[in-house]
Simulated assay, not measured.
Amino acid sequence: MSTQTFTVTGMTCGHCVASVTEEVSEIDGVEDVAVDLETGSVKVTSTTPLEDDAVRAAVEEAGYQLA
């Protein structure tokens, strides 16, 4: 298991959290996604370490940016 934390900018509400959670959850190997709206942190637990580019693409698909 691997846990990584990313910072996402632009999230302002629960819908933002849901969008980011949904997109990041679709990355192969992701087991859990925990988004903290207040800090913008996204904690991702996966079977193997994730490439930053994969997470960036998922976050951008949701309409936000990695910090």
Rank of each mutant, 00 (worst) to 15 (best):
R56K: 15
D53G: 05
E51L: 05
E61T: 15
D53H: 12
S25E: 11
L66S: 07
D53L: 02
F6L: 10
L37Q: 07
Q4Y: 00
G29F: 01
V24Y: 08
A54D: 15
D36F: 00
G14S: 12
S41Q: 15
E31I: 08
S25C: 07
A34G: 02
G14M: 03
G29H: 14
G14P: 05
E31T: 09
V42I: 09
E26S: 13
T48C: 03
D28N: 12
T9N: 15
M11S: 07
V8D: 07
T3I: 14
V30C: 06
G40Q: 09
L66G: 04
T39S: 15
E60I: 06
T7P: 01
E26Y: 08
M1K: 14
S19L: 11
S41N: 14
T48A: 13
L50I: 10
C13T: 15
V42R: 14
V24R: 13
C13S: 15
T5Y: 03
A34C: 00
V30L: 11
G14E: 14
R56Y: 04
T3D: 00
V30M: 12
G40V: 10
V20W: 07
E38T: 14
I27S: 06
S41M: 03
A57H: 05
L66P: 11
T39P: 00
A67K: 09
I27C: 14
T7C: 06
V55D: 07
E31F: 01
A58H: 09
L50Y: 14
S19F: 02
S46M: 02
V30W: 14
D52M: 01
A54Y: 01
E22V: 02
V8S: 11
K43N: 06
G14C: 05
E51I: 02
I27P: 07
M11Y: 03
E26L: 03
V44E: 06
L66T: 06
G40R: 10
K43I: 06
V35Y: 08
E61W: 00
E26W: 00
E61C: 07
T39D: 09
F6E: 01
L37S: 09
A67M: 08
T12Q: 12
A54L: 13
G63N: 11
L66R: 11
T9D: 12
S2E: 11
T7H: 10
V55C: 11
V17W: 07
V8P: 03
D52T: 14
V42M: 05
A58Q: 10
V30E: 12
S19G: 10
V35P: 00
G40Y: 05
L37Y: 08
T21E: 13
D28H: 04
E31C: 05
T12G: 07
T21H: 15
T48P: 02
A18V: 01
S2H: 08
H15R: 13
T47A: 15
G14Y: 10
G14R: 11
A62M: 08
R56T: 14
T3N: 05
V33K: 10
V55S: 12
E22W: 04
D36T: 13
T5R: 13
E60H: 04
E26G: 10
A58S: 09
P49L: 03
